[in-house]
Simulated assay, not measured.
Amino acid sequence: MPQLPAPDYPADVRARLDADAKEIIARYPGSRSALLPLLHLVQAEEGYVTRTGVRFCAEALDLTTAEVTAVSTFYSMYRRKPSGDYQVGVCTNTLCAVMGGDAIYSALREHLDVGDGETTEDGKVTLEHIECNAACDFAPVLMVNWEFFDNQTVESAKRLVDDLRDGQQVTPTRGAPLCTYQETSRILAGFPDARDGAVESTGGAGHASLVGLRLAKGEAPQPRVVSPRGGSPKAPAQPGSEHLSSHDAPQKTSASDPEHPAGPVTEEGE
């Protein structure tokens, strides 16, 4: 049975989205490049990418609905069915898993009575397991609408989802204050974030994540340079020196092959 055409948005909604889409498309030299933010835009309207949203993107960019659908189904940040106001993701990648992520995920499934990617009956929370979010030094990590909740336990994770369902104010460990999934989608579409300037209220990145930045800015001592092959430790590298690595430049040698020992290769042997 052929599928019926996707319905259009109500006239007032369509007019508003047309204006927003025009602003988004104008940012790019080629209109096709605007597809990802346009998908966030239509997701902000209904909480997921509907057939109506796909049709809107296709018409705005002169694409086929098949082309738009192919992109929207490829990226996990685009939802293809109704989901909760709060997307709770539990990192179950290697370090978070062994630090307690697997236990947290299992406990939340039971606590919320949902499966992976499912939403609680009140429409508040959607639970999923997620891959590494580059926050291993704070494992185990949860994310709610892409905001970080670090160093979680089973009990703290249960309190977190309970507070979300009860409408309590929930503060991320770092980053901006929490907002709903639809509000997050509009921000990802590239529109002003009402939370700008409020990041400091919840704190920034943790110490471990800032070490490299402080070194780059010269705000921390240079690391001690370790000499390989049993040599004496060297003084820290000075700014402007040719070799800033934590190791000496390697010699060309077959020391790794004990069956055929040899010294450094000479220029004649190259």
Rank of each mutant, 00 (worst) to 15 (best):
I104S: 02
N151I: 00
R224D: 14
L244T: 14
L41P: 02
A176S: 11
T64I: 04
Y86K: 05
E267I: 12
D20I: 02
L39R: 11
S31T: 12
P5F: 04
P221K: 01
E110V: 04
G47V: 07
D62Q: 09
K234C: 00
Y48H: 15
C57W: 04
T120W: 00
M99W: 01
D62G: 08
G100N: 02
R214W: 05
V42F: 04
C136S: 07
T69W: 10
V226G: 00
G212F: 12
D193R: 06
A60I: 02
T253H: 13
D102Y: 03
H111M: 02
F148N: 02
V68Q: 01
H111Y: 13
A198F: 08
L38C: 05
T94V: 09
L17P: 05
Q168I: 02
G53N: 06
A103H: 11
A6V: 07
L112Q: 03
A194N: 10
V154Y: 01
E242G: 15
E131C: 06
D166K: 15
S106P: 00
E121V: 12
E219W: 08
L41A: 09
R32H: 14
E155H: 11
S33L: 14
Y28M: 08
P2N: 12
Y105K: 02
E268L: 09
K234L: 13
E118T: 03
D193S: 04
A198V: 01
G190V: 10
A11F: 13
R159E: 14
G115S: 10
G167S: 03
Y28K: 04
Q152C: 04
I24G: 03
T92N: 09
A135M: 13
V141R: 00
V114A: 09
R55T: 08
A198R: 15
R79P: 00
E121L: 09
Q222H: 13
S246C: 10
L35E: 07
S156V: 02
G115R: 05
G117H: 06
A255F: 10
R195H: 11
A198K: 15
P236H: 03
H207Y: 14
D18Y: 01
Q251W: 03
Y9W: 13
L142F: 03
G84T: 06
Q168R: 11
A135T: 11
E147V: 06
T153M: 03
T50H: 07
I104D: 02
D116F: 07
H207A: 13
P192V: 05
